[in-house]
């Protein structure tokens, strides 16, 4: 992937596919370490699935045999000296908490580090495509924090859907304003 934000979009799509109702995307930047956490409350994976997910020849999809999303993220972080960890708890129907957490670490001063890129575009693409899922986005960087929680927006919007174009534009500008305030 050309930008790390594209990996984020792709990994969050896995969460959406696993019927998550809340997807939390957290990016922490401290010194030369970037930590990316994508956490969902979707159906989760069995131990067997989880073990084989890192192997690019494993996928539960039927249209094409090779799942690429997780192997690509693994490659992107390991190339910088970082690592990928996935924890998952499968929905056993008992009502117990379930879901998946993907944690990837990157050394940003490594030559092979892929820059984050247009992360705002990733957030609005996810919301536009999945207006019924809640997203909690948090990016902590040196000068401060950028946050967006669609649950708060929903409380204001009531029954107006999140994928309404004016709402998408508001989100885009709100995030851009927050980044600008930090970079000042």
């Amino acid at each position: 992937m050309k930008e790390l934000s594209l990996n984020i979009l792709d990994i969050a799509e896995n969460s959406a596919k696993a019927r998550a109702s809340l997807i939390e995307i957290t990016i922490k930047e401290a010194a030369n370490l970037l930590t990316l956490i994508i956490k969902d409350d979707g159906t989760g994976m069995s131990e067997k699935t989880l073990c084989s997910v890192i192997d690019p020849f494993y996928t539960t999809r039927t249209t094409r045999k090779v799942g690429l999303g997780i192997p690509l993220l693994k490659m992107a972080c390991e190339m910088t000296g970082g690592k990928l960890e996935i924890k998952s708890r499968e929905d056993d129907g008992s009502g117990a908490p379930h879901g998946t957490t993907v944690v990837a670490t990157f050394y940003t001063d490594h030559l092979d580090f892929t820059p984050l890129g247009d992360v705002i575009s990733t957030v609005i693409t996810l919301i536009q495509g999945h207006p019924d899922i809640d997203f909690a986005y948090k990016h902590s960087l040196k000068g401060g924090e950028v946050t967006l929680d669609t649950r708060e927006l929903r409380a204001v919007l009531e029954d107006i859907p999140l994928d309404t174009y004016d709402v998408i534009l508001w989100i885009k500008e709100n995030l851009a304003d927050q980044y600008e305030a930090i970079n000042k």
Binding site: M1, L6, L9, D10, E13, L68, L72, T125, G129
Partner: peptide, 14 residues
């Protein structure tokens, strides 16, 4: 918008 689409540039197209 699967991995192959995203990698090839689906986000700006969308």
């Amino acid at each position: 918008m699967a991995t192959c689409g995203i990698a090839a540039g689906a986000r700006p197209v969308l």
